[in-house]
Design a protein around this nucleic acid. Structure first.
Length: 426
RNA sequence: GGAGGAAUGGGUGAGUGGCUGAAACCACCGGUUUGCUAAACCGACGUACGGGUAUAACCUGUACCGCGGGUUCGAAUCCCGCUUCCUCCGCCA
């Protein structure tokens, strides 16, 4: 959620930013609407406060008169207060309505892209920030895609998942399951080594938490919900982990706060199914190690770079070819100010697979979450939040299997061997 | 699931209708003293949203004592509902 103050004071920058997200004139009107409702809000609040102030004064007077035994005068004042009460009620109702309207309007506006974000409408217009310059793995003519490899070596079973749950819920087994666990352990160890505190959060969250990171309102269709208990299955660990600090004022000394968590992620992916989603490319449940940072606003872009280096380091250790994209205005997530995507090369499918997304949200999440810190002078300021996948499993598994297939079986990268306990899947 | 108790500022905790945005103590912060540390002493010490041309620390209004409602001229204090926590019983990975 954007800060009202910023919209008021930097309207031009806000409008320019939204244009970068390809907002048209019609859509941009919402900004004026926000300013208008905000005026209403302030006027109404002013009137309400003044009325209440008067009541408070009168009430005090009544108390004094009662004490002095001036009963009749007190009764007269009571009538006055009673009149005001009607007015207060109306003003309070109005205020509530106005505030809800304003909040809903604010919720509908995405974050303002960082100045370095390229213009563009579609994923094709993302900029390659770092390309893969070495040769790609060369596979034999009859190289198999991961879904066939999974069958051949009995690593995972989609049909079985359908039987148990539905499409998009693979069952991993044998070395396939072990490979999952190895990756989880590896990624977590690396994150902890990099100074992130390991968090093991709940997988179901309440409404306030889903709201804090921006899943609600609007994106409920992307989450699985437990209606009976009004809980949501997390689409990413970002949700519970970032919300740990919701409604908190931390000391500047506590920054940066670095957290990592391994969780399964549940995504309905409503309407996202198409030609390219076979096998592990897109599933409803997958495992992911997330890294989250809460930092001083002056540090957040430096931090973003550090997080990118961390993710790149993981891919290097896994010996996977990857490239880094800087997302264009049209492809960026709602809450992000700047996002880098990591894609690994899937040699058998001959395409790039997105395996990580690292973003700086600046104050977009912290404003809505009221996550603040006290600076050197004791002043309270919104912190910046960042997060990134480090990494998501399903597609990493897909790429590992495909790229490392040989006639003798699938080779496990060196860094992973101590976690898998085997060097080859045959 | 049944019975009882509790919820106050960063922490402990006082406060049962107006003098309470809230005692006291601790912690934190600033200062004095000190060879250093410690101790002692002094001072400051909530948040949000408005207004005052006031996004450097100023003045002022309003709201907030778990959450939501109600009673009253006036509620941290009385009433109702909810949530959470604790204790006991039952059940159970």
């Amino acid at each position: 959620m954007l800060q009202l103050k910023v919209i008021r004071e930097e309207k031009k920058r806000i409008l320019d930013g939204l244009r970068k997200r390809n907002w048209n004139a019609q859509q941009l009107k919402v900004i004026d609407q926000i300013l208008q409702v905000d005026d209403q809000r302030r006027n109404n609040q002013n009137e309400l406060d003044n009325t209440l102030a008067e009541n408070n004064k009168l009430s005090k007077l009544i108390g004094q008169m009662m004490g002095q035994g001036k009963k009749e005068e007190a009764e007269a004042l009571k009538l006055q207060v009673a009149n005001h009460k009607e007015k207060v009620k109306v003003l309070e109702d109005q205020q509530r309505t106005i505030e809800t309207d304003l909040e809903n309007l604010l919720y509908s506006v995405p974050n303002i892209p960082h100045k370095s974000v390229p213009r563009g409408k579609t994923p094709e217009e993302n900029k390659v920030a770092k390309d893969w310059t070495k040769p790609f793995p060369v596979l034999p003519e009859d190289a198999a895609a991961h879904w066939d490899l999974g069958k051949k070596y009995n690593l995972f079973d989609f049909e079985l998942g359908v039987k148990l749950t539905g499409a998009g819920f693979p069952v991993y087994r044998g070395k396939g399951a072990r490979l999952q666990r190895a990756l989880v352990q590896f990624f977590l160890d690396e994150a902890v080594k990099a100074g992130f505190e390991e968090i093991n959060p709940p997988l179901l969250v309440n409404e306030a938490t889903a709201r804090g990171t921006g899943q609600l309102p609007d994106k409920e269709a992307q989450m699985y919900a437990c209606d009976l208990d009004k809980l949501y299955l997390i689409p990413t660990a970002e949700v519970p982990v970032t919300n740990i600090y919701r409604d908190e004022i931390v000391s500047i000394k506590d920054l940066p706060i670095k957290m990592t968590a391994f969780t399964p992620c549940f995504r309905r992916e409503a309407g996202a199914w198409g030609a390219h989603v076979r096998g592990l490319n897109r599933v409803h449940q997958f495992e992911k190690i997330e890294i989250v940072q809460i930092v001083h606003p002056d540090e957040s872009y430096k931090t973003l770079q550090a997080m990118i280096r961390h993710v790149a380091g993981l891919l290097n250790k896994l010996e996977l070819p990857y490239r880094i994209l800087k997302l264009c205005g049209g492809d960026m997530g709602f809450a992000s100010a700047l996002t880098y995507d990591f894609e690994v090369w899937s040699a058998a499918q001959k395409r790039w697979l997105e395996v990580s997304s690292v973003s700086n949200f600046e104050t977009f999440q912290t404003n809505r979450m009221k996550l603040r810190f006290r600076d050197e002078n004791g002043k309270i300021e919104l912190a910046h939040t960042l997060n990134g996948s480090a990494l998501a499993l399903a597609r990493i598994v897909a790429a590992l299997l495909e790229n490392n297939q040989t006639p003798e079986g699938i080779k496990i990268p060196k860094a992973l061997q101590k976690y898998t306990g085997f060097k080859t899947i045959e």
